[in-house]
Each structure stands twice: as structure tokens, then as C-alpha cells.
């Protein structure tokens, strides 16, 4: 019958294939400035739209709301507030994560947008919306100009 399930894939003429994709991404002119400041000086920069009264982090080239070019760069953080958090128990392949991993949305002080990042150094029970956190940067020699130059966020103070 059509669509009868088979439990014996090896009995069929089946094989494994892949769709290989390698991309070389650029960060763009705004990204160059943002990631260079993070790599060289452990500073987090946003761009401000005066018309919309918004500060975007990472700094962007244009305002998505009014389409103005953004040239007003401003430093934000490194402290901020947890806006959302989850405790991840299984990895992408379904294997148990021990200990579990905390992933959070962080609104840095001075920013109107949030960053998605790891949260560490806090008990699961204390990982709550509203928690004050700060960016933990990798050491200068380990920074590459990547969002992972912030290794994680940790409780502030």
C-alpha cells in the first residue's frame, strides 16, 4: 500500500547525502566598528536614532523604523538586566547537558534592544527576569572580533 511505513531503511535503495554550504560573511561597515571596539577595548557600542529615540545594540547602519542612516555612536553596558531566560537541559542532538545551560536576553544599560547570550555563575533558581548582570569578556589575546568575545553574562557586582 502507498505510504506504508517501513522500519527497515536498509532494505531500500536509500543513501546518505548532504547539502554542503560554506559561507564567508562580512559584518558590514557598522559591524566593523562594533566588533573592533569589542575586540580592542572590550567596549559595547550602539547607534542612536534621534528621530525614533532608540539605541540599537549592536550598532546598526540604519534605523529600521524611519530608514535614517545612523551615525551617532554611543557606549552601552557593560551591565544590564535579564529580560528573558531559559534553562536548557538537552543539546541539539538530544544529549543531556550536565550541568544545564542558561540562555538569556540581556538589555544592556543605555540600549533599547536586547542581546541573546549565555548566562553563567548563577544558580538556576536565581536566574530570573530582572536579574542585574554584566558582560564577562574574554581576555584581550583571546578576542577575535566576534559576539563570543563576550564569553557570557554573569551576575553584576
Amino acid at each position: 500500500m502507498p505510504l506504508d511505513p517501513t522500519l527497515h531503511a536498509d532494505d531500500l535503495r536509500a543513501w546518505y547525502g548532504s547539502m554542503p554550504v560554506t559561507s564567508r560573511y562580512t559584518v558590514g561597515p557598522a559591524g566593523e566598528r562594533f566588533f573592533r571596539a569589542m575586540k580592542d577595548a572590550a567596549r559595547i557600542l550602539g547607534t542612536r536614532c534621534g528621530r525614533c529615540n532608540l539605541t540599537y545594540v549592536p550598532g546598526r547602519l540604519f534605523c529600521e523604523r524611519c530608514f535614517d542612516e545612523l551615525t551617532d555612536w554611543t557606549e552601552v553596558g557593560p551591565s544590564g538586566t535579564i529580560e528573558a531566560v531559559t534553562v536548557v537541559h538537552l543539546d541539539l542532538d538530544g544529549a543531556l547537558l550536565e550541568p544545564p545551560v542558561l540562555m538569556a536576553l540581556v538589555r544592556l544599560d543605555g540600549a533599547d534592544t536586547v542581546l541573546y547570550h549565555r548566562l553563567s555563575g548563577v544558580d538556576v533558581a536565581d536566574a530570573k527576569i530582572g536579574l542585574r548582570v554584566e558582560a564577562a569578556f574574554r581576555r584581550l589575546e583571546d578576542r577575535t572580533g566576534s559576539i563570543l568575545d563576550i564569553s557570557h553574562f554573569r551576575p553584576a557586582g
Binding site: T26, G28, P29, E32, L61, R65, C66, F67
Partner: peptide
């Protein structure tokens, strides 16, 4: 090889098109 990201390329063209006829978003 553009330095700009795809969304930045789109913004440049979109902004030019709007400016060309005096419109905004």
C-alpha cells in the same frame, strides 16, 4: 565582494528608491 551585509545593501537601494520619488516609509 561587497563589504555591506545583505540587509545593508537592501537598505541602500530601498532608501534611494524612496528618495527618488520623495516618499518615506
Amino acid at each position: 565582494r561587497a563589504m555591506e551585509t545583505p540587509k545593508e545593501l537592501a537598505w541602500h537601494a530601498s532608501r534611494m528608491a524612496l528618495d527618488s520619488c520623495g516618499l518615506t516609509l
